[in-house]
């Protein structure tokens, strides 16, 4: 009995140590927050178009109906990494024929317009989220964020931060390929 009690501290310390070792895995990101939306239906939202931009606004309805999964990208002209990501998204649309929708997050319409004129507009539809409320519905923590949504409106994947650089693009491409084979149920 006494021996067992005396051995208790070392046993607890070992268990703690095992958790620490696990926690040091370099692939683990202690700041990452999993989205609650994954495998859930996309949130309900209805956003008007950006004033002066010739693509229409965006609502939940627009995401559904196609056989292929679509991308929803949250961006803003004030967001520096978005600029780098813009080229990647444009390439995905032009080369891979991905359908891309945008949520313009808390941006001044004139700034967004200038940004799109300057860089080009790869988005099929863009909703203007002036007060950031749709952003909350999607549970975003910053911009940019990109979601992959299945044809039936189920959110399959979320990428936080810019999809820029070989590693990120590959990760995203893999997720997109998986989404294409998704037939309902758990991805």
């Amino acid at each position: 009995m006494k021996r067992a009690v005396a051995a208790l501290p070392i046993l607890i310390a070992l268990v703690f140590g095992a958790f620490f070792l696990w926690g040091l895995n370099p692939d683990r990101d202690p700041n990452a927050i999993p989205s609650v939306l994954i495998t859930q239906s996309a949130p309900d939202f209805d956003l008007p178009a950006i004033e002066g931009v010739d693509v229409p606004g965006l609502s939940r309805r627009d995401l559904t109906g196609s056989a292929e999964p679509v991308l929803v990208n949250v961006f803003a002209s004030w967001c520096v990494p978005c600029r780098a990501e813009h080229a990647v998204l444009t390439r995905m649309v032009e080369r891979d024929g991905v359908r891309l929708f945008g949520i313009n997050y808390k941006d001044k319409p004139e700034d967004a317009r200038a940004w799109l004129e300057n860089l080009g507009n790869p988005y099929e539809r863009i909703g203007s989220d002036l007060n950031g409320r749709a952003g909350i519905e999607w549970g975003i923590s910053g911009v940019p964020e990109t979601f992959i949504v299945a044809g039936d409106g189920t959110v399959l994947y979320r990428y936080v931060g810019p999809v820029v650089g070989a590693e990120a693009e590959e990760k995203f491409a893999t997720a997109l390929a998986q989404a294409r084979t998704w037939k309902g149920g758990n991805p």
């Binding site: 051995a7 070392i10 140590g17 040091l24």
Partner: peptide, 28 residues
């Protein structure tokens, strides 16, 4: 820096693990 973390964890393992093992042995 996870690598530094690994080194310190090693130090923790030796010092805490060692002392508590010694404790489990001698304390009774």
């Amino acid at each position: 820096d996870p690598e530094r973390g690994l080194y310190i964890l090693g130090l923790l393992g030796v010092s805490i693990g060692g002392s508590l093992t010694l404790y489990a042995w001698r304390a009774p």
